[in-house]
Design a protein around this nucleic acid. Structure first.
Length: 563
RNA sequence: UGCCGGAUGGUGUAAUGGUAGCACAGCAGACUCUGGAUCUGCUUGUCUAGGUUCAAAUCCUAGUCCGGCAGCCA
């Protein structure tokens, strides 16, 4: 094993673990857990938690359990159980034998509940939801005690058993912890720990008709698994006293709950409900739409596990809410792909160029380096002929200052090929649109080297028209125009959708690209990083997704001078 | 306005009583057969007011602002 990354210094959770190890509090053990509820798709926010829980465990020689918090059969589905397992593995983490489900503990949890009743610390409550609400009170006023609060233990035991037996309708009774109806913390005002739900569970089937609430199931599942550090998000901070109360009341093994701030990413949304709204409203193509921050979407887009892990490391762990700039995520994927992705040439918005002094029937092959960052990736031959395509943006009839690309009378280098000079422009009679350029090339510049030492400032990419292959290319951009759509005025995040988040074009690619495999990632030189779509690509007929553009300093210059 | 948590450049974070640092973004320059990459430099910050101290982002007091909590969701 090589040494871990220069440890982005110890964040507060890492420090807590170090301290606990030092003081021997956990007997030298580190056991964390990632506890998703399988009721929505894994997204990059989960990745932050996954990376931390599995990462911390690995760092301290411990283990991290994967435990599904499946205590609410009405909202959960195996679809998401599978998705979490698939995506955690994809991210590169391994729970080994430690795959658990809260539903595995139902019998045991029931026994704990009975024990609580016997201790006089839980009781059956017959209040309906309206009454329940009224009795609970509000933060500024204490609640009232439920009539059930004084019920005898024997009677509580009897009713609870009959709840389990299915004798009552949903809502007729709940089991509540007997704590303090006057507590300033609402979660301590005799919280519900079991409710009747006549639902078929995705794992236990119809065996149960009562299900434990999160607060009851979670702490005890942690306890059963001998978790040392139970890391969760900030909104559970007010639940911690209840977490502690239950474990103390039952006198069982007591993990420590630690809270951190969840991830927010700019120009996107992370809430299950909103993601679902996008999918169901057909604003996107599905959970794996490449514009979504779901792990399936990011994967489909072409993001790598390493880049996502890197991102999760860089964002850090704190206790305050923040909005992380998506530019950091983009930096992470560019950083990796710059080192690993093969360079190829592709023209996405073609302009036909005829090289008048190049013989009609001639063709030749130029050497092109596959990756200037990595010589071991070798080179390839790229075909050249009299008619080529260049990017429309690389020509200006009236070039602005500092425009180093092609313009009438201006010379430019064709990447790896030769120098050409534009001699004339052909336009459509009616529309005035430029339809074709005529150029001459300098035979002495073959291979792209300067024959006489003259400097050519611009280098543009190209594709031989005769040899080009065509492919569908999907140009993705951020899904929202607003930096923080979830917080946007009017509460209507859909209003801020980017109407141009997807643009589909037909690209002209150098011929070698027909043989890419699905999921292969390449750099289209000067344009960006692209991934052969893993679903829609067919043998010999790839479809490309743009992962991220290259940094475009010319775009900035031009934008700046125009403004 | 009850309870809990929080506040460091544009953004994300580090510094736990001793030179406010790093990354992203931005700007400027160098280099370049990708206006990419790389390299160099630069701008910008401790919520406010008091206090303790030789010394405060850090400790104390008061205030301001932000987030969370009133599901039989997690």
């Amino acid at each position: 094993m090589n040494t871990p990354e220069p440890a982005s210094t110890g964040h507060f959770i890492r420090r807590i673990i170090e301290d606990d190890l030092k003081t021997g509090k956990t007997g030298g053990r580190v056991v964390t857990r990632f506890p998703p509820e399988p009721n929505g798709p894994p997204h990059i926010g989960h990745a932050k938690s996954i990376g931390m829980n599995f990462g911390l465990a690995a760092e301290f020689g411990g283990v991290c359990h994967l435990r599904f918090d499946d205590t609410n059969p009405s909202t959960e589905d195996v679809e998401y159980v599978d998705a979490f397992q698939r995506d955690i593995r994809w991210l590169g983490f391994d729970w080994g034998q430690n795959l658990f489900y809260a539903s595995d503990y139902y019998e045991r949890l029931y026994t704990y509940a009975v024990e609580l009743i016997k201790k006089g610390k839980a009781y059956v409550c017959e209040l309906n939801t309206g009454e329940f609400k009224e009795y609970r009170g509000v933060p500024t006023r204490p609640g009232k005690e439920s009539p059930g609060r004084t019920r005898l233990v024997e009677e509580n035991l009897d009713i609870f058993a009959r709840m389990r037996a299915g004798e009552f309708d949903e809502g007729r009774y709940v089991l509540r912890a007997r704590i303090d109806m006057a507590s300033p913390n609402l979660h301590l005002r005799d919280p519900v720990i079991y409710r009747i739900k006549k639902e078929v569970h995705h794992r236990t089937g119809a065996v149960w008709c009562i299900y434990p609430m999160y607060d009851f199931a979670h702490c005890l599942s942690d306890s059963i698994e001998k978790i040392t550090h139970s890391i969760c998000t900030l909104e559970f901070e007010v639940h911690r006293p209840l977490y502690d109360w239950i474990l103390d009341a039952l006198e069982v093994y007591h993990p420590r709950q630690i809270e951190f701030a969840r991830l927010n990413l700019s120009y996107t949304i992370m809430s299950k409900r909103k993601l679902q709204q996008l999918v169901e409203g057909k604003q996107v193509a599905g959970w794996d739409d490449p514009r979504l921050p779901t792990l399936a979407g990011l994967r489909r887009r072409g993001y790598t596990p390493a880049a996502i892990r890197d991102f999760c490391e860089r964002i850090g762990i704190t206790k305050f809410n923040s909005l992380t700039d998506v530019a950091l995520l983009e930096h992470c994927i560019r950083d990796e792909l710059n080192k690993t992705a093969s360079r190829v040439m592709a023209v996405l918005n073609p302009l036909r160029v005829v090289i008048d002094n190049y013989p009609e029937d001639q063709e030749e092959f130029f050497d092109a380096v596959n990756n200037p960052e990595d010589p071991t990736m070798g080179s390839r031959k790229v075909p050249f002929s009299r008619v080529i395509y260049i990017e429309r943006d690389d020509f200006r009839e009236q070039p602005p200052k500092k425009f180093f690309r092609l313009a009438p009378g201006q010379e430019v280098r064709l990447r790896y090929a030769c120098y050409i000079t534009c001699t004339s422009v052909v336009k459509d009679d009616k529309t005035g649109e430029i339809v074709e350029l005529h150029c001459t090339y300098d035979p002495a510049s073959r291979g792209g080297a300067s024959p006489d030492g003259r400097k050519v400032r611009g280098t543009i990419h190209w594709v031989s028209a005769r040899h080009a292959v065509q492919a569908e290319v999907r140009l993705y951009d951020r899904l929202f125009l607003h930096e923080n759509p979830a917080e946007a005025e009017g509460n209507d995040f859909l209003r801020h959708l980017n109407p141009n988040s997807l643009q589909v074009v037909t690209g002209f690619l150098e011929p070698g690209l027909v043989s890419v495999n699905p999921w292969d990632r390449v750099q289209f030189e000067r344009l960006g990083y692209f991934c052969a779509d893993g679903v829609d690509s067919k043998p010999g007929q790839p479809v490309f997704n743009r992962i991220v553009t290259l940094k475009d300093s010319w775009g900035k210059i031009e934008k700046g001078s125009a403004g």
